[in-house]
């Protein structure tokens, strides 16, 4: 089933000549080869001029809006500004943020959000995708239904959940009350605030992940299912022995993407609990960065914390890139 390595090297374009045919030792040039090469280079540049011009635009955009801010952020993390004078501060900003009691709380909260988001936000879309994949009817309609929350503006979704969670007149407590079940303080308790934020976040974002899982599921050859069904496997065994192994890489990629995105969570806690939540229980790392920069006017501390987050995310991104490469192969 695997593709032979030789035929994979250049998918589009002329095949490379086999090694040893027409090769030349380093430094050895045929008469007139330099002139020919320069001419070929010029022709190649001329032929691809439009492509290069388009590339310049993209590169400029990346340089201006991604790379330069990243470099600037790293520089800022080691600088202090006082009375308009910016000086090098060494490790001062890093020491300052680690001395802030909110620092470790923000990391704990972020880890808690990521953990909850993995359990809920990772498992729920997968289960929904598996169920959708098994359906014979209404699959298209249900796919739209599942994706619908993603199309809502995040602020609208969050405000909707803020109403649902209200302990006084909120929908959730009304339902629990009608069912004679104990009500909850939802966002207004240190015990349930973060979980409530994750539930809202999962509902808002699961549509995209579900569709990706569904696409991966539909790429699994039907013969594999037929084979295990002949062996008498039920739904759970089909999922365990075929679905999960066949979607392993997609699952791993989405897991990492989810870790990377959930560690940067800001909008949901900011709008649902005002950012900090009861006794700081929903203060996340990115919300703390926001506080440093825009409420405390301490760009050095904001940049330092941003740098720490960047390093943590870079590790996960590295794994993601590696897995992505494996998927490509």
């Amino acid at each position: 089933m695997t593709t032979p390595a030789a035929s994979r090297s250049v998918p589009h374009g002329p095949a490379l000549p086999p090694a040893g045919h027409g090769t030349r030792a380093p430094g050895e040039l045929a008469p007139g080869a330099g002139r020919r090469d320069r001419g070929a280079l010029r022709r190649s540049i001329r032929r691809n001029l439009t492509a290069y011009a388009f590339l310049v635009g993209a590169l400029l955009c990346f340089a201006l809006f991604s790379w330069f801010p990243m470099v600037r952020e790293v520089i800022l993390a080691f600088q202090r500004t006082h009375r308009g004078t910016t000086t090098w501060a060494g490790w001062h900003n890093l020491r300052q943020i680690t001395a802030d009691p909110a620092f470790w709380q923000a990391w704990r909260n972020t880890a808690q959000f990521t953990g909850y988001a993995l359990v809920l936000g990772f498992a729920v879309p997968f289960v929904v995708a598996v169920v959708l994949n098994e359906l014979r009817h209404f699959q298209g309609y249900l796919r739209i239904l599942v994706y619908l929350p993603v199309m809502l503006p995040p602020v609208a979704s969050v405000l909707l959940f803020k109403y649902f969670y209200d302990p006084g007149y909120g929908l959730f407590n009304e339902i629990l009350h009608a069912l004679h079940l104990p009500t909850s303080q939802w966002l207004q308790s240190t015990h349930t605030a973060m979980l409530s934020v994750v539930i809202a976040s999962t509902w808002m974002n699961m549509g995209g992940a579900t569709l990706i899982y569904l696409a991966a599921l539909q790429g699994i050859p039907g013969e594999l299912y037929e084979a295990v069904e002949l062996d008498g496997a039920g739904l759970l065994r089909r999922v365990w022995h075929v679905t999960i192994p066949q979607t392993r890489l997609v699952l791993s990629l989405l897991l990492l993407m989810q870790i990377i995105s959930t560690m940067q969570v800001f909008t949901e806690p900011y709008l649902l609990t005002g950012g900090a939540g009861p006794q700081g229980s929903t203060t996340t790392v990115v919300y703390l960065i926001y506080q440093y920069a825009f409420n405390f006017d301490n760009y050095g501390a904001a940049a330092a914390l941003g740098l720490v987050l960047l390093i943590v995310l870079a590790v996960f991104s590295g794994i993601y890139v590696r897995l992505n490469r494996e998927t490509g192969e």
């Binding site: 303080q185 308790s189 240190t190 939540g277 009861p278 006794q279 700081g280």
Partner: peptide
């Protein structure tokens, strides 16, 4: 804020 939210939510 934490002290205020503490007495008002707990």
């Amino acid at each position: 804020d934490n002290a205020m939210s503490g007495v008002l939510t707990n």
